[in-house]
Design a protein around this nucleic acid. Sequence first.
RNA 1: GGCGCCGUAGCCAAGUGGUAAGGCAGGGGUCUGCAAAACCCUCAUCCCCGGUUCGAAUCCGGGCGGCGCCUCCA
Length: 484
Amino acid sequence: MSLKIYNTFTGKKEDFVPVVPGHVKMYVCGVTVYDRCHMGHARAGVVFDFVYRSLKFLGFETTYVRNFTDVDDKIIKRASERGITCDELVDENIKAFYEDMDSLFLKRPDHEPRATRYIAQMQDIIKTLLAKGLAYEAGGDVYFAVEKFPEYGNLSKRHLDEMEAGARVAVNEGKNNPLDFALWKAAKPGEPKWPSPWGEGRPGWHIECSAMGRDLLGEEFDIHGGGKDLVFPHHENEIAQSQGACGKPPARYWMHNGFVNINKEKMSKSLGNFFTIREVTQKFDPEVVRLYLLSTHYRSPIDFADEYLREAQGTLDYLYRALHRAEILPGFDYNFDPNKADEISDNILEKLKGALEDDFNSATAVALLHETAKKLNLAVSSVKHNSVGISYVSVAGYYSALRRIGDVLGLFNYEREGYFKRITVFHLREIGISEYEIQTLVDRRDSARKLKNFIEADAIRDKLLNKRIEIEDTQFGTKWWVHR
RNA sequence: GGCGCCGUAGCCAAGUGGUAAGGCAGGGGUCUGCAAAACCCUCAUCCCCGGUUCGAAUCCGGGCGGCGCCUCCA
């Protein structure tokens, strides 16, 4: 099998054929940096990070571009409300963006262009469009004339006459057609501005992606991604501009991720039902958030609720426990020769490949995570019970396969016991008990058990359980952890 | 009003022509002093009605229900 990608443009899953064999060029719309990122941004970020990791896993060389929109109406408005400059606002939010996205273990794209650094390239495109008669000037503004571009509406599957009938389009006196959109906006007093052949002003929203995509990836690249809400008008307009100027659509495959919902409704600022990334990662480990977001296919909507995150948390605990059990096995070798485990891991990774090639099916990859962890647990317990040499090979095979799946999903970033230490510290502070206190109680219970004083031992266990500390008696001694 | 998506077990969620992945919850076990953890077993015929087909959750038509876009938005 080979990679198949659902293309919004055709509405079908298609065989993926890159412009340059073996090399994928991908452009994903980033954020407008006027505020902190919410879970919707997290989903788009995680989804395309997963796509990026998948492409690499599948053996493609990949060039990934994700932009920042750092000039825009909302930025101007917010900066003036707060009494700071646009630059200050932008810098602050880019910094916050990196804190949030880094916390979610997103790999940095190869290029992260900012719109304001591409003013000249945008103006070049606008000049071309004017020269071709696809755009017109109106009092310092420049608009794209949608009627001059016959393919307009092909991406979002709508037609000009239908949209005009919709009548929800704002009327602007400068425009010939209410659906025409701004390529260049004349500057109002106090706004950021750049000189141009049409007077001082600033670029319209859509033109930046046309300019940056072309500059960094060329006139025709492979994948263009973003949230579903960008299909219209943003990507539709981007195609109009780029194709209008260059003669061909900028990208071959258009990928759009579904929304994050709250109670089945779109999370949005206007509904006031949104959560910022930092609010969520304060309650749940970022890897839990990743695992949850990837447990549903990227095109489907995903409902967001603590209850669901808690389930993902349970799964992540289970996975880390399985890894940990293998790691503490006497004689476990982190540097085990992977060739010896080939048959096992190859088989699993072949399945992973199948899932990724099927339009990046992360949900199936997550299922594979479960299956592999279960087999790892079995292999570990068989080693414990009869120490047959061959089982070590199985342990190594399942262990490395599990980690490999985790890599593609962006999980298991915490080394060895790091994950458990992290959640322990996090929750103990919340519960208000120290590790020392816990260990003292655990030791007292062990003494009681040795004397077969089970009433005392169980009383201590209950006491710990009340503090959400769970006890596990193993052949290697008594372990405890925070029950979440 | 136009366009589009979706409807799989109590819940979450894959599967898009050959007789339903995975997870949570539930039930029954193994292990354990008892637990916990882990493992094993168990738990659906795919919104409704027609049609195409040897065969459909999967294709077509019609309903019903939910959601999204058409305005800034991941």
